[in-house]
Amino acid sequence: MYGWIWRHLPGNAWVRAVISLVLVLAVVYVLFQYVFPWAEPLLPFNDVTVDGQ
């Protein structure tokens, strides 16, 4: 999987390394901004009320 991505990136090893880093940061950003905020309420830490809201 990662080998496949690496082989399909353009440029020499340095360029590929930089692009990989940018890709990793982009994935982390999407996770923190969109995916985790959606998943977090599924955990029990939000249940602090007594009327089930």
């Binding site: 982390v28 996770l31 923190f32 985790f36 998943a39 977090e40 955990l43 830490f45």
Partner: peptide, 13 residues
Amino acid sequence: LIVLFVVYVLYWT
């Protein structure tokens, strides 16, 4: 992913 999620819940929130 799991490590990142733990960081998110414990620290980033």
